[in-house]
Write a protein that binds this DNA or RNA. Structure first.
Lengths: 263, 263
DNA sequence: GGGTGAGTTCCAAATAATGAAACTCGATTT
DNA sequence: AAATCGAGTTTCATTATTTGGAACTCACCC
């Protein structure tokens, strides 16, 4: 009921794709085999297949594999259709303008937080180098807030998959502490990151919920202890929640012209 | 030797992923089945598997599928590692600054041109909405130029896959015309788009080649007939070629710290 | 309340995946 | 120059997975 790889041949092949992506650099076949549960011939065939398919790219000069450009094309479609980013863009711009702080738009990918868009106070955003980044769910504002508003079964699944690595003295390091905080977040309607991931960095996050109450994503405003404190961030809640509501409303309308305006 | 789907179960599953992406909007199961070579039960299982894997996302409110957010995460890795974009960024910035024209950085994905980065004279670039876009190979400057510098076998394969749809009166509409132009481009070292894709839009493109002569990508400068002409673009060739060389050199060095600076 | 069609499950037959072992080939070592 | 080594590649009998026609569920409409 929670197979680590599973889903037959396709799932196995995709796990190889993840493995290559996780290396963060072009990787040789030997390096993959060393960290792979698959026997040599099997892994070899997976890698061949994925390369044929353009999901991996092979550098013949070096004999290395890296995630392939076909993924970029597919991600373009994913980003445009499945993420909140295109719909949320104008609202993020407005919120960023108004607050002058860094804001993140995130969604859940498995048990991890995936950032799909960002507005940085300082520099303009950097394409794929920002979107597509992942973070832990248990020690980020958006992560905890999205978890808090999911169905209990789904939450439990994800909570169990967290690593609870201690990043700072404030990191929550066990499931019980996390669960307790999730209850609190659900009651308040918003969650904090109290320097749990990085010292000096605090954030406040609200969920983006569909009409039916499903978690579509999360929206957060990040700042530092130099510049403000939790109470200061809390004062921004109404404005952030309003933005989240607008995004949710737009997303419901936009995702489906249902009947395209006619007849 | 050029299986349209092939590669066993994994290839079939990925073709379904492409199909969903191609719709450009969330899609119902019935719509997929209507355009699918697979029988209902088979397609159903593929879609289930891909959804489990996060490669597709299912909207339970609407009963629709769309490309999933896992792709965004994978694409982040692909873009960072496999594309020229991160390496090329500063050079594109400089070239854009110097020329004040729109420039594109592209690579080949199957038989199509995939844009991995862009600098627009006018507005700042828009994340995934620019990167990840695709275009036809036979009627764009970068497309033809990349083709011209590939190995003959590979070129032939790709030429055969072109649709040769006529976009403008200047579009090359058959393989023979394209092949003739490829020869010319290879001799000159650069290629034009002579309003072949869009009326009034012209461009000049150079290849980005590895030490061993492999085509890594293409770099183009686009303008309009209002502002300049082919001869005007041609005058930019030295500067563009210099940028392409710098990107190639950097890519060779960067892709592999070979032995990481130590020992 | 019967009909329709989207979505889902079943299961025997057909097919594809598996992986130990053997092989190739270039680069070291003896 | 021969032997060794190790990365990468292929083989093939065995095994497990995929396949898809058909039957089923369920909600909705007439």
């Amino acid at each position: 009921m929670s197979a680590p790889i599973g889903d037959g041949t396709v799932g196995k092949a995709l796990s190889v794709l993840d493995q290559v992506a996780a290396f963060g650099r072009p990787v040789r076949f030997v390096e993959l085999i060393a960290a792979s549960p698959f026997p040599k011939a099997t892994l070899y065939r997976f890698v061949q297949t994925l390369t044929n398919q353009g999901m991996l790219s092979f550098d013949p000069d070096r004999g290395t594999y890296a995630p392939g450009v076909r993924l970029v094309r597919l991600a373009h479609a994913a980003w445009a259709q499945s993420s909140l980013a295109p719909v949320a863009r104008p609202y993020l711009d407005a919120l960023s303008e108004s607050l002058g702080e860094t804001i993140h738009l995130a969604q859940l990918d498995h048990a991890q937080v995936l950032y799909v868009d960002k507005r940085s106070a300082a520099r303009p955003l950097e394409m794929f180098s920002d979107a597509g980044k992942i973070g832990p769910a248990y020690c980020t504002g958006v992560g905890k807030t999205m978890l808090a508003f999911m169905e209990n079964d789904a939450t439990d699944d994800i909570v169990e998959q967290q690593s609870f690595h201690r990043f700072t003295p404030h990191t929550l390091t066990d499931a019980a502490a996390l669960r307790a905080e999730l209850v609190e977040i659900r009651e308040n309607g918003y969650g904090f990151d109290r320097e749990e991931h990085e010292p000096g960095i605090i954030c406040i996050a609200v969920p983006i919920l569909s009409d039916s109450g499903r978690v579509l994503g999360g929206l957060s405003v990040t700042s530092s202890t130099d510049r403000t404190n939790l109470a200061g961030l809390e004062r921004l809640v109404p404005e952030i929640q309003e933005t989240a509501k607008q995004i949710a409303r737009e997303a419901s309308a936009w995702r489906f012209p249902d009947r395209v305006a006619s007849t």
